[in-house]
Design a protein around this nucleic acid. Structure first.
Lengths: 200, 200
DNA sequence: CCTACCGATCGGTAGG
DNA sequence: CCTACCGATCGGTAGG
């Protein structure tokens, strides 16, 4: 008789992702061996290959689980149908919360995309693009003049992502600065329309 | 009679850095083998080890040469003693020019710092900090209220770096957007003081 | 006697 | 779920 799947199968898969995320964030995907992950999980390399067919699939699991949370958040905020300004404010706060709450996964998502084989990389890239579109549509609603120049609109959108994404490289959760303060600062800079406030 | 050092010794060292930078940027430091670099230079691995004692020293050379250019630029702009607003404007433009003109080295500087052994990493980190200090002092001169809260001042400084540093992940030099346009956008957002322009 | 450079190979470790 | 291994490739160094 075929054995049934272990009752804690899903919890184990998730635990592997969380240990792998920490290691990938700290030492990089290529700098982390499958043996490193197995040791962190208190298991053998062979056990790990029971849950994931390859090291690359572990990386995909880390990225995929994280970006799905961000995408759900974006969808939820759009569904609230608040003003664009309020929605942008909410989006930045939610994202900063996840960036800090799942700092390792966020770092992996931002830094290790190139280590995914092209075919499964497309899945992640498509979701990233949808998140970018949400941000750009909110910014465009706030600054209608952005409609006139799609190239500049995309650039401004990416500068806003730059502000929050780059926090993975310097933010210290042990310090006094809160994710909410960062979100507020980024919000203020994002809604600046940069017309006529130059006094040079 | 002792042979003197080859006349093109320095050019050769520099050529190695430029090929290594391109490979490190494309495949990552750990994803690039010494043999890859040697092949790109049209030489053998042994020749490469004649110029650099280790792979790590090649990485250091790539980062060091690039950050020195950025630091010199920052010093030069400060020496001009223009208004803080003009200086910030110049700094952002100069940095964006180097980020795009030396895109590979910039990418390596931002992504591969953890692969440097701690002792030589300190050299780079110290120079990065000096650049951050320049940016923060300019922003503080423009927004004197930042003096009241050093934590927020540092956060705003890092958000500004986020805008320009993140461009390494999306900017396409083949497109219509120029480094100068990005610098202008980042400048407008950096000088926004975010007080009273909320109309929510 | 030093620098420049080659083909070949070292001891270990990678993902699977 | 482990030990035992594989084909290959790693960074670095040997003699000449």
């Amino acid at each position: 008789m075929a054995r049934t799947q272990a009752a804690d199968y899903d919890e184990r898969k998730e635990a592997i992702l969380s240990h792998a995320a920490a290691l990938f964030a700290e030492k990089g995907y290529l700098g982390t061996s499958v043996m490193d992950i197995a040791r962190a999980c208190g298991s053998s390399k062979a056990l790990l290959y029971h849950y994931y067919p390859s090291k690359e699939d572990v990386l995909f699991g880390v990225m995929s689980s994280h970006i799905d949370v961000l995408l759900d958040d974006a969808a939820e905020i759009l569904a609230e149908r608040s003003s664009p300004t309020d929605s942008l404010h909410s989006l930045l706060h939610r994202f900063m919360d996840h960036y800090v709450g799942a700092a390792s996964r966020q770092k992996v998502l931002l830094n290790e995309l190139d280590n995914l084989p092209v075919d499964i990389r497309r899945t992640i890239v498509a979701k990233q693009r949808r998140i970018v579109e949400v941000m750009q549509s909110l910014l465009t609603s706030i600054h209608p003049q952005m409609l006139a120049d799609p190239v500049l609109a995309r650039a401004k959108t990416m500068l806003v992502f730059g502000m929050i994404n780059w926090t993975s490289n310097w933010y210290d959760p042990a310090g006094k600065l809160t994710p909410s303060q960062i979100a507020d600062l980024a919000f203020e800079m994002a809604i600046a329309d940069g017309s006529g406030q130059l006094e040079r």
